[in-house]
Structures are given as C-alpha cells and as structure tokens.
C-alpha cells in the first residue's frame, strides 16, 4: 500500500497553515497524528495533492488550567492526556477516555483534535466532549470562533469545522465525579457503545454523552431530564438509564445489531452513572 504522490508542507505558524489551506482548497488536507488520514491515503481513499503537517505549530500542544477552565490544545496526543497530572486532578474523565482509546501506537501518535475532526461515529472522544459540555475553538481565515460540543458533530465523519478551518483548542470545566464505560469492538478498539457520564450531586444534575450507538454521537437528553433535581440514588440512576437510546436510530453492522447497541447504551449508561456518582 503506497499513497498516491503528494506535496508536503510543514508550516511553523497557524497563519501560515491557514493560508496554505485557503490557497489549495480541497486539494489540501491537514495532517495531525495521521492515524486516520495516512491509512486512508495508503488505501487511496484519500488522495490529497498537498499534506499540511501541523505537528510543529506552536500553541496547539499544551494542557493549561486557566480561569477555572481547562484548555487542551488540538495537537495534544491521547497518551499525553492519559499521563497528565493536571487532568487527573481536575478532569479525570479525559484521562479515563484517553486511556481507553485504541492501542499504545494510536495513543502515542493520535491527537484529540485530529480524532474530533475525523468524527468517526465510534470514536471515544465525542462521548467525553459531550458529557463535559466542552467548547471547541476553531481558527479560520476570518478569525476565531467557538462552537459548543452539542453543535460540533453534524454527520458521519462531519463536524462544524469547515473547509479552510483548523480546530485549535478544546475547553472544559473541571469535573470530579465522572466515568467512561465502553463496550469495544475487540479487534479495532472502536466503541460499539461508549458512555461518558458527569454527575453534579450538589446541583442534582447529570450529563451523559454516548458514542458508537447512533450515526452522530449524542447527549442522552431523556436520561438527563429524568434525573434533573433528583437525589442521585442507585435506583433512580438505573431507571433513568432505561431512556439512554430513546428517540435514537442505532447503527447496525456485522459487529452489533441496532437492538444490541440500544441495549448496550442502557446498560453502560446505568454503569457510568453509578460509577460517576460514587466518585
């Protein structure tokens, strides 16, 4: 498997990268960790004329606690997140999800920004990003804009990031009581169903993000509504989790039927909520 011939550019600044994208339009593709793009290029499913490697850009590789919020650069790898002390203290959900991704090679090279932009409906990050109600900062020729997690995923392999734009940063609020429960496809590690839950016992509120089940990852709105203002007892968590696939048309493939995915959504939601509530 060899990629079709392509040109390679490694800009040093974000502006340089943006101007390469605007000059070359859809002939150019951004290279982050390369764990989705490179295999697609080798299979010649993707044949960009120009690969713009953003691996050396300044300012996309940091994890910072800032104004009570956490900012994670788009080019931070899964492994760096899994090993981050700052995140382990303030937002352990990100550490838990990063540790559950693929295998060591994928975690060492793959990046949170690259994974989010690729938007595989069975990727792990969407569940966490939704449960944390993250903000996603996107740079484009007209400057920067911020999109909420709920508006980020727009279709299969499609996001709010438009051609010519670059995802720069993911911002979340610290959350202690959280958990990620995934049933994975054994060979690939992709989620047949991954559920991230964040519990706020004081405000009596939960947020649940689900990946792998529907064509587009989603917040389990019916579960969240059922628990709004409720004391988070084991019985009420389990009952609410029964709504985890309400109104959703689940994916079906050789690995799991639609009914099985819906079942996993309910079971994993109950487990994630209980685990989060106990933390």
């Amino acid at each position: 498997m060899f990629a079709a011939p392509f040109d390679y550019a490694r800009p040093k600044t974000l502006d340089e990268a943006l101007s390469l994208l605007s000059k070359h339009g859809d002939e150019a593709r951004l290279l982050a960790g390369g764990h989705s793009l490179i295999p697609a290029m080798k299979l010649r499913l993707a044949q960009p004329r120009l690969v713009v490697d953003i691996g050396r850009l300044d300012g996309l590789r940091q994890i910072e606690a800032r104004d009570g919020r956490l900012a994670i650069g788009a080019m931070v790898t899964h492994a760096e997140i899994a090993a981050s002390r700052t995140l382990a203290d303030l937002c352990p959900l990100l550490v838990e999800v990063a540790s559950a991704i693929g295998d060591l090679q994928v975690r060492n090279k793959g990046t949170i920004g690259g994974s989010l932009v690729h938007a595989d409906p069975a990727g792990d990050w969407p569940a966490a990003i939704l449960a944390l109600d993250a903000e996603i900062e996107i740079a484009g020729p007209q400057g920067r804009r911020t999109v909420t997690a709920g508006a980020f995923f727009t279709g299969i392999l499609e996001t709010a990031v438009k051609p010519g734009e670059i995802l720069c940063e993911i911002r979340v609020t610290a959350a202690a009581a959280s958990a990620y429960v995934k049933t994975e496809q054994k060979a690939s590690g992709f989620a047949l169903c991954g559920v991230a839950a964040v519990v706020d016992a004081t405000a009596r509120r939960v947020r649940v993000g689900i990946t792998g089940v529907a064509p587009v990852p989603y917040r389990a709105a019916a579960v969240e509504r059922a628990l709004e203002g409720q004391a988070l007892a084991e019985g009420s968590l389990a009952a609410a989790a029964g709504q985890a696939a309400a109104g959703v048309t689940p994916l079906a493939d050789i690995h799991a039927s639609a009914d099985y995915r819906a079942h996993l959504a309910r079971v994993n939601t109950a487990r994630a909520l209980q685990r989060a509530a106990s933390r």
Partner: peptide, 16 residues
C-alpha cells in the same frame, strides 16, 4: 476498496 475498509460505516452513510 471503500466497501472493504469502510463496511462499518456504509449502511449509516447510505442512510444519511
């Protein structure tokens, strides 16, 4: 090639 490596997403993409 697309069906060999993309089978996981084919049905859902067709529906979309």
């Amino acid at each position: 090639v697309v069906s060999a490596v993309g089978s996981r997403l084919l049905d859902a993409t067709a529906r979309m």
